[in-house]
Write a protein that binds this DNA or RNA. Structure first.
Lengths: 229, 229
DNA sequence: ATTATAAGTGTATATTTTACAATTAATTTA
DNA sequence: TAAATTAATTGTAAAATATACACTTATAAT
């Protein structure tokens, strides 16, 4: 078959990644300094161009791997950005993805390559093009996801304490929660398994580790349960 | 400046529109019969190709106008679809949009052009490519929007009765609501203005018309109010 | 005048959310 | 080794919200 669409224009297609990370203290965003024009030297999201042999999801995962060296990251598409002049150099449509990097993988990020830096979520520098808009949208999406699905755990190591989890939610939603109410609510569906072991770095008493119980979660959701934080 | 990105591939970019309509009885989806290959003769969403001189939002509005002859329709981007083989003829990335056509404009849709037909939302025919996936996603998005923002009104004429509004919500959420509770909840924020006039077609008693009070809604949201149905 | 039809209305109960403070476990220090 | 320090852990009462439920009313048709 020949190309039935060849009277139409073709476009460069980029993927841009909003990469969230959590170092058990602060919610962060990974940015790079652009090493090519336009906007060379400015802060930017990590991005790359779609190539013919890959799906857009694959392209996003590839771009993420190129920057961080990490595979199997939580990755979800946000939406496309297609204003005519969003990239001053040429017409480029970008599909934005957001990624969640857990605190184990967090430290392994190769931040030298591409001069990457983590920024505290409320201290993000000026970004090129429409990248700020993408970040804002991603944060709203993250909030919504965290209030209807157990994706918060993607930002934590496999074993985590309830104070750590609460701190994460407080950073994501930018507000404080009452300890007792938080624990009540997060434990009520029974999708967190309490371990015998305690974390002893951050307090004298030590806090029990918990683990996300995927099997239990799947059971619940199959039975129509709606997680709601 | 020359083209700094010219080592990268370029792609056909389509927009596909999930067009919801409400005829005051049923929630419907507008589909067309494709009049070109691939998939000629099959049911499909209305779509078109992005051209160089337009943003993707503009392209979606144009495509919608071409099909329906209607302008100023509620239009929101869903997301991009970019599997390698989603279109068997050539590599095409599609950005899906969903549109809400109110019942006044509903009747004006030029359904001959493009052999378009309205389908009841739970009697949608088999669609080409990944269009069914897009529709499912759009319906979920519509539900969420309607439970957090007053977009439902986009599907109704300017003046509508509470029974009409309730029926709309029941069709969107595919479940029944208690009359008294529904009225209580929808009226509580005070964003619906009761008119003197009654609608007299559908009952002997007649039902009072209401109107969405945008000014009041804006006041509320500026003061941090969150609409929540 | 009677009947039929859909619109309109209130209250009690259950559930969920919120507010709030003392006890416990373990380390550090005096 | 006793006392002080620190963060983790726990329950209950009040407020707000959601749910369940049935009769009256306005009007057109007969």
């Amino acid at each position: 078959m020949t190309h039935p669409y060849n009277k139409h224009s073709r476009f460069y297609l980029a993927v841009d990644c909003i990469i969230f990370g959590f170092d058990t203290k602060e919610l962060k965003l990974l940015c790079i300094r652009r090493n090519f024009e336009p906007g060379k030297g400015k802060w930017s999201l990590m991005g790359g161009f779609l190539e013919m042999d890959e799906s857009i999801d694959e392209a996003a995962a590839r771009v993420l791997y190129e920057l961080t060296g990490i595979e199997n990251i939580y990755l979800e598409q946000l939406q496309g950005y297609g204003e005519r002049d969003r990239d001053p150099a040429d017409r480029v449509i970008s599909i934005a993805y957001y990624a969640l990097i857990n605190s184990v993988k967090f430290g392994k990020v190769i931040s030298d390559k591409y001069s990457a830096s983590w920024f505290n979520i409320n201290q993000i520098p000026e970004l090129v093009f429409d990248h700020k808009e993408m970040v804002d949208k991603a944060l709203r999406r993250l909030r919504r996801r965290c209030s209807t699905q157990p994706v918060g755990f993607e930002l934590l190591p496999e074993k985590f304490t309830l104070p750590q989890l609460q701190n994460l939610y407080e950073k994501i939603f930018d507000r404080e929660f009452d300890k007792r109410n938080f624990r009540k609510k997060i434990l009520s569906p029974g999708i967190l398994k309490k371990l015998e072991e305690k974390e002893r770095q951050s307090s004298r008493k030590g806090a029990f580790y918990y683990q996300f119980d995927k099997q239990r979660y799947d059971e619940l959701t199959n039975n129509g349960y709606n997680f709601d934080m």
